[in-house]
Computed example of a mutant assay.
Amino acid sequence: MTTHSTARTWLRIALLTLGAAAVLAVTLLLGTAIGETRIPLEMVRQVLANQLFGAGYAVDPIDQGIVWNYRLTRAIVAMCCGTGLALSGVILQSLLRNALADPYLLGISAGASTGAVLVTVAGLGAGAISMTAGAFGGAVLAFTLVALLAHAAGGGGLHNSGQIVLAGIAGSQLFNALTSLIITKSGSAEQARGIMFWLLGSLSGARWPSVWLTLTVAVAGVLACLWFARALDAFIFGTESAAALGVPVRRVQIVLLLTAALVTAVMVSVAGAIGFVGLVIPHVARLLVGVRHSRLLPASALLGAVFLVAADVVSRILIAGQVLPIGVITSLVGAPIFALMLLRQRQGGRS
């Protein structure tokens, strides 16, 4: 590669990075300004200037608290959750070579929910285990059981993507039932209502500790996925082809599956089980940028972030005076989009 072409490549990467940063900044500003009551963008700018640079604008303390401690944290956590769930969807679809693979369908989200509820409601660990740790353990356990069930049902383990999706659906139902049982037996009526609302997706509890947790995990997930981007390209042609190209198949599978489980567990522990982000966003990204993971992963991360911030805004303004679970919005949007993709794929197969 010549020096000129290398310079052009780095310039293109820099421009794309700046463009993505600008899109995320605008998304966060809009997510902070739009909500149950609209806050002017100028006030948002003044609050951010006060908090970040000590600008000294005269802003009402209540408005400043709403912007800084509620709206902004909620928007950032939504951005991180969208990024993490979309990346997990890319990982699972690529490794399993199945368009239906995502954390929600494969039981990872359901297992994470069960682990989180065991810690928070049933008191597992007597306070020694964090909610995130419980969610991660539940996610890993759920996917392990799903893989074992797929292997027992049809053989092939992770190589049999059709069986693993069916096993994932069964695993999701099992862990959802366990979650409901735990809530019913261990929680009060008020606690049960709060947990069930959270399980459908809720960012109402997002505060700065949640921001640092989800932001750290989302950034680490992006970097880990980009590190294995070329390996994921090789998995497009199957595990045997990937091994022939020199990819350490087993090690890459373990690292990336654990990454998907950890990212999903953290996002579920903060925002609940949000469906369709990991399923639909990677498909939309493939339509826009193709299947090369060096482009697919950043595009999926960006689209997931924007989509979930927008879904959170809609969940707050769709019904006046009432906040809907964010999972309701993602399902209402994601299900029709995925149905259109299936129809398009079927029509493409006939032509």
Rank of each mutant, 00 (worst) to 15 (best):
A335Y: 00
V23S: 11
R74K: 12
L141C: 13
H159P: 00
T179N: 07
S180H: 03
S269H: 04
E190I: 08
L200S: 04
A147K: 07
G168A: 12
G54D: 10
A139Q: 01
A152N: 00
A261E: 00
L87D: 03
L158T: 14
A78E: 03
V252R: 10
H4F: 14
L226C: 10
Q51I: 02
G201C: 07
G334W: 00
L72V: 04
G187V: 01
A244E: 13
G349Y: 14
L28S: 05
G272S: 08
G115T: 07
G84Y: 05
A135H: 10
T73E: 07
G56K: 08
L303I: 13
T83E: 02
M131H: 13
P282C: 07
A339S: 12
F228S: 01
A110N: 02
I13K: 08
R193N: 12
R207A: 11
S204L: 08
L29D: 05
V313C: 06
H283G: 03
G304A: 11
F136R: 03
V252P: 05
L141Y: 02
K185A: 06
C81Y: 05
D312G: 10
L41W: 08
L203N: 01
G155N: 04
Y104F: 15
V252L: 10
G31T: 05
L297Y: 02
A152W: 08
R71P: 00
A75D: 06
T214D: 01
P209K: 15
V23L: 15
L87V: 13
D233Y: 15
L215R: 07
F175V: 03
F235L: 12
T3Y: 14
R12M: 05
A170W: 01
V67W: 00
A224G: 04
L258W: 08
G157A: 04
G321H: 13
A320I: 10
F237K: 09
G221Y: 00
T239M: 14
T17P: 11
P40I: 03
I329W: 01
A78Y: 04
I129V: 15
M79H: 05
E240C: 02
L223A: 12
L296K: 07
A22G: 09
G334D: 01
A101H: 08
C81V: 15
T259I: 02
H159R: 06
W68R: 11
V284P: 00
T330P: 08
L308I: 06
L149P: 00
A58I: 08
E240Y: 09
G278A: 14
A126D: 13
S109L: 11
I317R: 15
G275P: 00
A14M: 06
T73N: 12
M196Y: 05
L85S: 05
L95S: 04
P248M: 04
I34T: 11
V323N: 11
L296T: 05
V23I: 15
L199S: 14
G348C: 04
I274A: 10
L340S: 14
S130N: 03
L223W: 12
T120E: 15
R207D: 03
L200A: 13
R8M: 15
L16G: 13
R38T: 09
A299M: 10
